[in-house]
Design a protein around this nucleic acid. Structure first.
Lengths: 357, 357
DNA sequence: CATGATTGCGTAAACGATAACTCAGCCCAA
DNA sequence: TTGGGCTGAGTTATCGTTTACGCAATCATG
């Protein structure tokens, strides 16, 4: 039996076709708001028959809970924040995609913001997400300092670093084993007979440092000399100038007296720039110079010279980062920070297809 | 002069270092909550001297408004929802990126969800975003029907369709002029001397229809015959199988008695598949068959054969869609739906570099 | 000098939901 | 008959802000 609504609510409904509230259902069924709320949340307090009736009526009236009201009292927003340096970069796009897929089923939504590789902008975006009280934060950071992370910690909001980590910061981290990336790539070049292997490294991030370290270790283990000037950097302005950076760095390498016969590039865009420079100078890939990239971006098998690349399994990184974040949200007290390393995999293509050792 | 807090709030602060509230500032300064709130929103009600003092103290105490509380009473979430078929697709990634950049400055955040080209999932995601009361919705839809849009309209939430539009739906739309895309591409092939031009079209979306129509019109205007069987489709399963779809379609075209000498492909992934098939069959691009794609994706100038492509200016699409959405949020009553078409631009590369007419 | 407007701030009641109690009725054992 | 424990509801306060008023004090006006 229906009960009539009060005049005020009636008017409001007519004016703006407002969404139904618990109160509306309660009045409609002659029950109290709390009873409806309890049914909604599966409280054991409610009689079986009442529960069924309410559930049915809720469906009929197309009830959808008001997240704002809920968040206000429970403190939970059912929202995860993600900050990436560049959404256009296939690596981060894939990470975002798999995070989204992972949390979707658990009822969470994803707020994505891009820092455009700008530390200051990243700070702002983090603040914005904190102000919105996201339940957890996933960050592929372009920072130099750890200041903004301290701020997150103050707020006691769980966060997970993706791809790039920070020394001296006891934070959760999910990313690829960068040293292994460097080793894999460099070992492969060595196996293919390269003896003067250069490395074009990225800016001052953990990622770049790790890969460079792996490169050095691989050379050392094969007793190959680390030729001075064979490690170049694309500069500090971030990932975005990867291609031009790779191009310029390679031009310098080509002018070098001991011209390299293999180049391990920080990532695929850099490798593209490198290949452009090599081919532009009239040299052949891989006969004169072999090239390895990292990231295994889309279409890298259909490039002018199909590119050998180290796959970071970005999809797994996203998935595991999301799962880790969700577990932190559910956790009671403070949990010991966890580091999860994904194992990289070498994808061999034409850019290193030369005479074996 | 500071006033002491009540025991209860004190305890809470200590336990979880809760964010400061208006109440905290008010008590701290011996003012009322409302006064602080008014200062925050720039009400003209407050004396100049008080305003300055409050503003200063707010900064000092690192006040950040609680969005949930605000949303609860004002109905505004300062959140925009975006639904795309696939974040990994560079087109949508770029659109997302520029939307994000456009709304950032206005204080909005972006909730991004991916439908994975699945209409049912898209419905769910739209519902989810509606339940969260986003201020506006941007959708690049994978739907067949207009049902879910009706639902959005019921809720009176402004929405803008991106890239794909629907006949018979009076909705806001921002996308490329698809017919012009088809004309541009086909005319170009004709100018380059192609006479048997095939088209590999996309699934049943407005985008695919428009491009196919442009293709037909261009042929007709040059009095070229529309050879039966020269229009193939990659199938209905969406954009994601672009590359294999293009490959298979092209294999069929190659087996055709009147083998085409030019192919206009629905998009770049399809074009990649097509090129793979052509080269795999031992034919040359563009000498035997010229290829045009659409989308002008990253690195398409460094492919095995650099690909001529129609640029959709996805960045402009995102920017204008965002601006349109924001204007709708601000608008008072119902506004007449607006359609904004971005003008496509042909980027000529090697895949069509053959003897001119 | 009384009246009315203006300035500057405070009070109380929402917004929609949940948390923490309370409480009536019933059953059962002592 | 009394008391204790369930069961299945309802009451009330609260989350942090905003909205709509209320109301002194000051100022101008005739």
């Amino acid at each position: 039996m229906k009960h009539s609504s009060s005049g005020k609510d009636e008017e409001k409904k007519a004016r703006k076709s407002a969404p139904v509230r618990l109160k509306d259902i309660a009045r409609d069924m002659g029950l109290s708001t709390v009873t409806i709320s309890k049914v909604l949340r599966g409280h054991s307090d409610i009689g079986e028959e009442t529960r069924k009736r309410v559930l049915k009526r809720m469906k009929e009236m197309h009830y959808q809970p008001n997240f704002a009201a809920r968040a206000l009292i429970t403190g939970k927003t059912w929202t995860i924040g993600l900050v990436v340096p560049d959404l256009l970069h296939p690596f981060f796009a894939q990470v975002a995609k798999s995070i989204s897929a992972e949390i979707r089923g658990q009822g969470y939504c994803l707020m994505i913001t891009s820092s455009e590789e700008d530390p200051e902008l990243e700070q702002q975006e983090i603040d914005q997400l904190l102000a919105r009280r996201v339940d957890a934060l996933l960050i592929a950071s372009a920072q130099w300092t750890v200041e903004s992370f301290r701020r997150i910690e103050e707020r006691k909001i769980p966060y997970v670093l993706i791809d790039r980590k920070f020394a001296g910061l006891g934070a959760n981290f999910v990313g690829v084993d960068d040293e292994l990336v460097g080793i894999l790539a460099t070992n492969h070049l060595i196996e293919r007979g390269c003896r003067r292997i250069a490395h074009i490294r990225g800016p001052e991030t953990s990622t770049a440092l790790g890969r460079a370290e792996g490169y050095r270790r691989a050379l050392a283990e094969h007793s190959l000399p680390a030729i001075p000037g064979h490690i170049l950097s694309i500069g500090s302005s971030g990932d975005d100038r990867g291609e031009p950076g790779g191009f310029e760095a390679t031009r310098k390498l080509l002018a070098f007296k001991a011209r390299p016969d293999g180049i391990f590039c920080f990532n695929d865009p850099v490798a593209l720039g490198a290949m452009r420079a090599i081919l532009g100078a009239g040299l052949r890939i891989p006969q004169d110079i072999a090239v390895v990239g990292c990231g295994n971006v889309l279409y890298s098998d259909f490039l002018r010279v199909p590119l050998t690349s180290v796959d970071q399994d970005s999809s797994a990184i996203g998935k595991r980062a999301a799962a880790l974040a969700l577990s932190l949200v559910g956790a009671k007290g403070t949990v010991r920070p966890k580091t999860e390393l994904v194992v990289p995999r070498l994808i061999v293509r034409e850019s290193t297809l030369r005479n074996q050792k």
